[in-house]
C-alpha cells in the first residue's frame, strides 16, 4: 500500500504537540517526525497524517485556530 501523507509544517515543537493533542482527541492518526530535509532547513518536527484525512485535518485545525505553517503532500 502506498498511501500518500499529509505533512503539517509548524513553527515550533510546541505547536506540533498542540496539533498532536487535537488530532488524538478527534481520532485522527498522526505521528511527529523530523521535518523532511527538502521541505525545510529547520531542525524541528512536523506532524505526519494520512492525506485521505485532509478534510478533517483542516476542520480540526481551523476550529481550534491552531497555529501551523503549511500542509504539504508527500
Amino acid at each position: 500500500m502506498n498511501a500518500s501523507h499529509a505533512v503539517i509544517l509548524v513553527d515550533s515543537t510546541s505547536h506540533a504537540l498542540r496539533i498532536e493533542k487535537l488530532f488524538q482527541a478527534s481520532g485522527l492518526a498522526c505521528k511527529l517526525i523530523p521535518v523532511p530535509r527538502h521541505l525545510s532547513s529547520d531542525c524541528g518536527v512536523c506532524v505526519r497524517c494520512n492525506s485521505t484525512d485532509l478534510p478533517l485535518i483542516h476542520q480540526v485545525l481551523d476550529d481550534a485556530r491552531a497555529p501551523y505553517h503549511s500542509i504539504e503532500i508527500l
Binding site: S14, R18, P34, V35, C43, V45
Partner: peptide
C-alpha cells in the same frame, strides 16, 4: 526537548507540553 526530531527529543518535548 524540541531541538532534535528523534523520538526521545519528541518525548521530552511532549512532557514539557
Amino acid at each position: 526537548p524540541g531541538r532534535s526530531g528523534h523520538r526521545m527529543s519528541v518525548e521530552a518535548a511532549r512532557m514539557v507540553y
